[in-house]
């Protein structure tokens, strides 16, 4: 039995597997346009409430079928805590926090970002099917963390 040659084939197979995973990831990000939140700008959390666009949290239409939802997180609520959009809308969620780290995850979608004091977070998603989604704070933010949520209603 030559263990070494078995090992080589095993590792080669593993390498092929990993490369396939990476190719799939490349395809997802370039061909399917799945992107991560990135550098979207800085903000002072203590004055965020007075700083545009966060001085007026809410949904606004930015074009034909496109919207921007400006969301302000604080312990333990999202403002606004309900967003209604028509089916098929492309929504850009722009969010930040005024106090501790919060999370923002819209269930059933890939909208999933951390809200970190000092940073603006942004992600775009198209809601193709009617229905209801929860907006959840999924990072521990204090004693009432499990009560912090909102809703996206796709009509």
């Amino acid at each position: 039995m030559n263990i070494l040659s078995y090992e080589k084939s095993f590792l080669a197979l593993g390498a092929v597997l990993l490369v396939c995973c990476l190719l799939a990831l490349g395809y997802a990000s370039f061909a399917m346009g799945i992107h991560l939140p990135g550098e979207e700008g800085l903000i002072d959390p203590e004055t965020a409430r007075e700083t545009p666009p966060f001085d007026a949290p809410g949904l606004r239409q930015t074009g034909d079928g496109t919207y921007e939802a400006v969301i302000l997180a604080s312990a333990w609520k999202f403002e606004p805590n309900e967003i209604r959009v028509p089916t098929g809308s492309e929504v850009t969620l722009t969010a930040t926090t005024v106090d501790v780290i919060h999370g923002l995850h819209v269930t059933g979608t890939r909208v999933n970002m951390m809200l970190i004091p000092g940073q603006i977070a942004r992600v775009t998603y198209t809601f193709r099917q009617p229905g209801e989604h929860l907006i959840l704070c999924h990072e521990y933010c204090g004693i009432n963390h499990h009560t912090m949520f909102g809703k996206v209603i796709v009509e």
Binding site: L11, G14, A15, L18, C21, L22, L25, H35, L36, P37, G38, E39, E40, L42, N112, M113, M114, L115, I116, G118, Q119, I120, A121, R122
Partner: peptide, 22 residues
């Protein structure tokens, strides 16, 4: 999923992560 860190840096770490699976 953190804001404030570029996608390029995240991708680099992704590659390294697959490397350490080896």
């Amino acid at each position: 999923t953190d804001p404030g860190i570029s996608t390029a840096m995240k991708t680099l770490h992704l590659l390294m992560t697959f490397g350490v699976f080896f």
